[in-house]
Amino acid sequence: MRLTLSIDERRASARKVLRVPAVVQLAAGDRLEGRALDVSSGGVSIAVSKNPRVSTQCKLFFTLPLEGSLHAINCQAVVVHAILSNELGFKVGLKINEITAESKAKLERYLRR
């Protein structure tokens, strides 16, 4: 018997909508500018114009709206999936590997709102 999981069932934590600019700096040096779609404590979904390879290590930069201002979040991530989306270009799932304690605290505050 084979089981298949939906995208929601694969997620380890709940996601919250986030519509802010995002930048992905790939390990090879390419820079992808796009837009965040949603965020969780373990990852971010973004829309970009180019298709990054799955398993590519990267740096991720975005902001979180908290308490009336924007707070910069920088973290290390890995591309876990990328799919073509007619409206968005490529929808890319990034798993956060490393994040500072300060950024993690800000992310958790955003998710609790």
Rank of each mutant, 00 (worst) to 15 (best):
D8T: 07
Q25G: 01
Q57E: 12
V44I: 14
S40K: 06
D38N: 10
S103C: 12
S55R: 14
P65G: 08
G68D: 07
G29K: 10
A77S: 14
R11T: 02
A36W: 03
S40E: 00
S13T: 09
Q76C: 01
N74K: 13
D38A: 05
P52L: 11
A27W: 03
Y110R: 06
A28P: 01
I96T: 11
I73S: 00
R19P: 00
K106L: 15
A77R: 13
E9A: 11
L66I: 12
P21R: 13
V23T: 15
L66R: 03
V24G: 04
L37I: 15
L111Q: 02
Q57G: 09
N74I: 02
E102Y: 06
T56N: 10
P52E: 12
E9F: 04
D30W: 05
E9G: 01
E87L: 12
N86I: 07
S55Q: 12
A36S: 14
K50D: 13
R10G: 01
L60W: 07
F90I: 05
R53L: 15
A14N: 08
P21Y: 07
E33P: 01
K16L: 06
E33I: 06
E102T: 08
K95F: 05
K95Y: 07
R35F: 08
T100H: 09
R31K: 05
H71K: 14
G68S: 10
K91E: 11
S41K: 12
S41W: 08
T63M: 05
A82S: 15
L26K: 01
A72L: 14
Q25P: 01
E9W: 00
S103M: 05
R53Y: 11
L88D: 06
S69Y: 00
R113Y: 05
L94K: 06
K59P: 00
R35A: 11
R11F: 05
V24D: 02
I83W: 01
Y110S: 10
V92P: 06
S69R: 14
R31H: 04
S49Y: 04
T4C: 02
L107Q: 07
I83A: 09
K106E: 08
